[in-house]
Simulated scan of single mutants.
Amino acid sequence: MERILLVEPDYKNKYPPIGLMKIASYHRGKEDYVEFYKGKAPYTMIAKFDRVYVTTLFTFYYEITVETIRHYLNYMHKDNVYVGGISATLLQKKYKKDLKIDNVIARQLTSSSLLGYDDAVNIDDLPLDYDILDDIKYEYPSGDNIFLYTTRGCPRGCEFCAVSKLEPRFKDTNSIINQINATREKYGDKRNILIMDNNVLYSKELDKVVRDLNAVGYINNTPNYIGV
């Protein structure tokens, strides 16, 4: 059993770290111990873990993110520190150069082999682990929602937008009914669904998406009704 520390730098953000929530599901599926920390954990805590995952968000948070990663590199061998997320994708070479580490992962975690494992699990398709949010005191303004994707990517390829680099292929995802029911069964119901798509309106399955949402209780004449 490995001991896994998930880290988000101590910046203000609206949404919880979706990528770390999926990594938590992966490791807990392997019966590893997983803990989430926001900011710089003390050495006495870091020393108890086998590897650290640090998420990144916007590029304008680069300095605080690098400072946070360096903190963990002071106490953990660089081969056991993994960096991923939006900023890491857009500035991958800069992170590697400035931090002198190799484990800076761009785009989505479509295979656990990117983390050095040989079970070839598509981590990006795993359900979110909402329990990690109980490990920290920080309250995300949009934290009390069921988060899901109905599509990934965007076919437009606009020059000003980073989506084509983050999610280069547009596709419909797995059943949202299964996503919602699995979350409700394990973590309880939440008032709202928060769809995290980049361009859901492009989906040819949009009518089905709305019907599926209505079918699981998000129906007309209710506060959380979703329609088109």
Results as ranks from 00 to 15, higher is better:
S175G: 06
P141E: 10
Y149F: 15
E139T: 13
V54H: 02
E2H: 13
R152C: 11
D129I: 08
F49S: 02
R107F: 01
I86C: 00
A215F: 03
S111F: 10
P155I: 10
D10N: 14
D207H: 09
R184D: 09
I69N: 08
G116W: 08
L148Q: 07
Y117V: 11
H71C: 12
P155T: 11
G116D: 11
Y149H: 14
S25P: 07
S87D: 14
I219G: 06
T65H: 05
K208H: 10
G19H: 06
I18N: 05
R211A: 12
A24Q: 04
P17F: 05
Y15T: 12
A215W: 02
D79A: 11
I132R: 01
Y117D: 15
P155F: 06
K78T: 04
R3H: 14
E185A: 15
I177V: 15
M1Q: 11
I136G: 05
N192K: 13
H77D: 14
M76F: 06
D131P: 00
K186W: 06
Y138R: 07
R51E: 10
Y75Q: 10
I4K: 08
Y218N: 03
G19A: 12
T59A: 08
D124W: 13
K137P: 00
D32W: 10
R152A: 06
Y11I: 14
T56Q: 06
F60S: 10
A182S: 14
P17D: 03
L128F: 13
R211D: 13
S164V: 01
F58V: 01
T56V: 02
R184S: 07
E8A: 04
V66Q: 08
Y26H: 06
D102F: 00
V83S: 02
N198D: 15
K171N: 14
G85K: 03
D125Q: 15
N192S: 13
L115F: 10
C161P: 11
I193Y: 09
I69R: 08
A215M: 01
P223M: 02
N192V: 10
M21V: 00
G29I: 10
G29W: 07
A47I: 00
D125C: 12
Y61V: 00
V209T: 12
I86D: 01
Y95V: 00
N80H: 13
D197I: 13
Y11S: 02
L91H: 01
